[in-house]
Nucleic acid binder design. Structure first.
Lengths: 211, 211
DNA sequence: TCGGTAGCCTATCGATTGATAGGCCTGGGG
DNA sequence: CCCCAGGCCTATCAATCGATAGGCTACCGA
């Protein structure tokens, strides 16, 4: 625990900027959100934003880092681990969805701006996440744990289920994050497992390794 | 067939505006795309856009109508039909994904602007689509064809898989649209069917009703 | 032949954008 | 006591936004 269970109004201005900006970016899109609207949400004047961030882009860049850094680390850790690839994918999914649900920021807008040349320097980090995820999927297909499906199709479906979760639950501090995570991860595993009856075994195994 | 298998450069200006605008909206977002960029892509001057559309909003509005009108009709038809709800959901999915793949427009941006008050008049039509889809899912769960899963979770996953398909294939006139449609629809059905072995039976039944 | 209309153009509008300049106030260290 | 740095303010900037006004040209039906 970080110990900052502060009321929203007591949070440092910089932190409040990140939260309100992420919320507005998620709702109206990055380009659809002006610095004046962000300032209004934080209840300061628009130029005051630039005492905390050098530019509007920098606010978005920080949100991108928050989204990618931990996700890429966890995905890579699972990709390079041993044992059942299906189990490792499940663990990654549970972690990622829980993270999304618990995160104080609405990270909806992150992936949709990654193609923008302005944020080109974030693309490498994003690619490591994509590669790690892809690697887990292909491993599970090759080993026969998953049905013979186009890895591209599977990954696209997974990525967008996650993105939908971000979009619908982000920045709300969902109380039952674990339940949501299990439901979505189970949905994905059922769609991919050659033997769907293995799902419960995988859920139990993942639960044990966490506890 | 409509008979307009024209070269892109021979298309009427109005049509080229719709196509280029949809492509740019999909890539940069609605607010991230200026009317000048659209005009540049169509190779006309910016004010000339307003001889074909009264406003930038009107371009987006037309794309929304294209996206929603047929989708809502098909979804409602399947929702009010008889027989296996799982089969009807599969049919709707196949139709929708094929439509997305074949569509001349990139409809990525449509759903992301539906919350905007500017397009509030489109929301009712969108709601009929959402309701019809939800109804199919709940019917399949209640009848036992689908596993006992939260309908909200299932619908969210489906919607976002579809949206991901829009985003990644839109406006490209995918040649093997049928293959993509079957793969994605099968992914969804596998995740939901209580008895996954019924998938092949459903695919065959859907194929027959089309032919 | 002529009037009108469709389609595109140049020039320009007011509003809004992200960002800068510089002043005011407060709190802490010498 | 003074100084100064951090944090916020007002005022304002140039750039870009969506949209309008009005002129030129090609074409079509009476």
């Amino acid at each position: 625990m970080t110990g900052l269970e502060l009321d929203s109004e007591e949070l440092p201005t910089r932190e409040r900027i990140l939260r309100e900006a992420s919320r507005l970016f998620g709702k109206k899109g990055y380009h659809g959100t002006s610095t004046r609207k962000i300032a209004e949400a934080v209840d300061i004047r628009q130029p005051s934003l630039f005492h905390h961030f050098p530019s509007k882009d920098a606010i978005m860049a920080e949100l991108i880092d928050i989204d990618l850094d931990e996700a890429a680390t966890v995905a890579q850790a699972q990709a390079s681990a041993d044992g059942s690839a299906a189990l490792r994918l499940y663990k990654y999914l549970i972690w990622d969805i829980s993270f999304i649900c618990r995160c104080a920021y609405d990270l909806t807008s992150v992936e949709s701006v990654l193609d923008d040349p302005v944020f080109a320097d974030k693309r490498a980090r994003h690619q490591t996440l994509v590669d790690a995820r892809r690697s887990l999927i292909e491993e599970a297909i090759d080993s026969g744990e998953f049905v013979k499906v186009d890895p591209e199709v599977a990954e696209r479906a997974i990525v967008w289920i996650l993105r939908g979760d971000i979009n619908d639950t982000a920045g709300q501090a969902i109380p039952d994050a674990d339940v949501v995570a299990d439901q979505l991860a189970s949905f994905i595993l059922r769609a991919l497992l050659s033997d769907p009856s293995r799902l419960d075994e995988i859920r139990v195994a993942a639960g044990e390794s966490v506890a």
